[in-house]
Every structure is written in C-alpha cells, then in structure tokens.
Amino acid sequence: MKITCDRQQLLDAVLNVQRAVSSKSSIPALQGILLKAKQNSIYLCGYDAEMLGMTTEIEASVLQTGTVVLSAKLFGDIIRRLPDERVHLETDDKNMTTIQSGQSNFSIVGIPAEEYPELPKISGERGIQIPNSVLKDMIHQTIFAVAESDAKPIHTGTLFEIGDGKIRLVSVDGYRLALREERVNSEENGLSFVVPGKALQEVSKLLPENDENCAIQVGSRHILFTVGSYTVIARLLEGEFLDYRSAIPQNSSSTVTIKTSDFIDSVERVSLLITDRLKSPIRCIFEEDTIRLSSYTPIGRASDQFPAKLEGNSVEMGFNNHYLLDALRNAEGDQVKVELNGPLSPMKVLPMEGNSFLFLVLPVRLKSEDAG
C-alpha cells in the first residue's frame, strides 16, 4: 500500500472511526483500525465485534492499493501531531507501515488485514430516509432516558416505531420516559426495533445540522445508518420493550402552563443543597397561580417559587431533581404543558400544541422532614 492524503481529513476520519474500536479485546486486530487503499480513496473501519462498527472513505492519491490494520490509539496520536498538511503512508509485505509528513517519519508494526473480522451484512432490509437535523433532535430528546444499568438490557436502547407516515422514538429507564414523534415520507408500516443507546450517541455525533437525509436500513439483527461518507452498523437489542402506551396516564386532574426557563431556574436553585452524597427529593406544590419548590438536606433548606397557571386541583409532589431537569431541558418551546393526576401518578410534560414530544417523570414519595 502506498498513498498520499490530506492530514486533516485523515485525522477527522481516524478520530471518528476510533470511537467504534474495542478498547479491550482478545483479538489484537480489533484494537486497531482497518485501512484499505482503493483506486482513489482510503477506506477506514473500526469495529468492536459485538455492538458497533463504523466505516468511512476519504480521498487519497493511491500509488499502490493494499490493506493493513494499525493500532487505533497509536495511529491517531501520530496523525494528530504530524507537522505538514500532507501525509504519506506506505506498507511493506510484512505490514511495517511508514508514516511521513514534513520532516517527521514513523515506522510502526501493522497487523495483517486477514485477521480483521468482517462487518455483519444487513439481511432482509427495510428502511427509511430522515433529515439529519430531525434525527439528531429526536435522538437528543430521548437518549437521556435510556437505562444505564443492564438489569433489562432491552432498555439500554431506544425503541423505534415506523408506520402511518410517522417515526417515533421511545426511551425508558424505570424512572422516566421520553417519547418523540415526527412525520416522515415513508410507506413503511409496522416496523419496530430497538437500537443500543451507545450506537445512537455515535450516530448523533456524526449527524450535521442540515436537511440532507440520513439513510436507515434495518435487517433482522442489525441496523445501518448512512450519514454522509460514514456508515454506522449496530446490533439490534432483543427482548420485550416496556408497553409504554399503558405506562402513560390517560387522565389528568390538573393541567399547568409553565414558562420552561422559570421552572428550570427554580429547580436549579433549590438543587444547590442536593449532592450525590446528600440526596433529597424536590418538593413541588402546584397551586392556582404559583409553583412553590423546596428542598431539605442535612446542610440546610432552600425554597423558591415562580408564577404558573393551574387548571384543576392543587397537588403536592416530590421529584428527583436530575430527572426533572432532564425532562425540562429537553422540552421544545418557551412554554410547556404539565399534566398531573395526583401525588403518586407520573408527571407528563407536553408541548403547548401537538404531540411532538412527551416526557414522563415518576414522583418520589415525600417524608415529613422534606417539608422545609
């Protein structure tokens, strides 16, 4: 293999693909990046052989085609520090790879490409196209509610439902639920699958804020996202996802109209006494024209209030401050509608109009000493 390419393009590609590389693996090749010199380009691939694979191609002047696997960390560190705008790569028949740029010259030991596992093939594919900016927003507004523990592995991913000209993403972790829906130009119906949260985080980092389309292809066991020159392949999660429709309260006894920034600021203020060591719920009292918040921990008490409009019954509830803030920060619009159905039923956070998102936050039982 003998190529010349732009250093910045190569560095961007290496840093992105590197994120799919396995940090610990019994197969040395999986701790590396696969490089393939083609006719006018170089192909890069990172793969952890379990959950995630990422590929891309960049332009290159190719004098000799070939393949090699190079240590992802070492290769990335070298490219990052090269002094010139152009990089020359050359690999001999024993996989010794020379990297040269300006006056800098490195020779590093490569691994034969034959030792690199093949990426899975997508079989029985169905799929859709969705604007990059829309998918990025949808992931951002649901991924915060993905479960971090793997007590139920299926909940470490986000449920995708596609049908009737809509795409819906749903994440749950036992304490909250995030749902985001958009219309799409697709004839797919009844398509449902769960994508690992880790894969969605990587896709989100690659997605630009533009109206070009991301292509999603779904097979029986894997999913493929194509974002510009990148592809991300992930293994779908198996199992029974929560019946989220039955978890969403259908009725409410109170509806509150709230300025989102007022609620966020107030929660942040009364959270100042709460730490990982000194945990305490935030007490929220929803009244006719005011929401009063308070917290109590061994280091002190805090209280605050702000105006809001309540229709229905007054209600007093407790919430985990982080879960409450996550829901509010991911809500769209200057105002939100909050629906309540008593102190022990989940809080629903909704847009003022339409149903583009729905966040559920489960309440926390309050003790008398939390009263402030």
Rank of each mutant, 00 (worst) to 15 (best):
R176P: 12
L237F: 05
L177N: 09
T158F: 02
R245H: 08
G219R: 08
L159I: 06
S186P: 15
E212S: 08
A234R: 00
G157N: 04
E238V: 09
G174C: 13
F160Y: 12
S186C: 14
I233H: 00
R180N: 11
I233P: 02
G157L: 07
S220M: 06
V194P: 05
L200I: 10
T158A: 12
F160A: 04
E238P: 02
L236K: 02
L224H: 06
L236Y: 04
P208A: 14
A199C: 07
S220F: 03
L236Q: 09
D211I: 00
R221N: 13
I216V: 10
T156C: 09
V195K: 01
D164W: 01
T158H: 01
N213Q: 03
T158W: 01
L242T: 04
Q217F: 06
E188R: 14
H222T: 07
V184A: 09
V170S: 05
E209F: 10
G165W: 10
I248G: 03
I248Y: 05
N189I: 10
E181R: 14
N185G: 12
A234M: 00
A178P: 12
S204C: 15
Y175R: 14
Q217M: 08
N185W: 10
F225D: 02
E238R: 06
R245C: 02
I248S: 03
G228N: 11
R221M: 06
L169V: 06
N213E: 04
I223N: 04
V203T: 10
E161D: 08
I233V: 13
R176C: 12
Q201M: 11
V172Y: 03
I167T: 10
T156I: 09
T158S: 09
E240L: 03
L159H: 02
L200D: 09
S171E: 12
A215L: 02
D173S: 15
T158N: 00
A178S: 15
K166Q: 09
S204T: 12
V172N: 04
L207G: 13
N189M: 12
Y244K: 02
G228F: 06
L242Y: 05
D211R: 01
G197D: 07
Q217K: 07
I216Y: 04
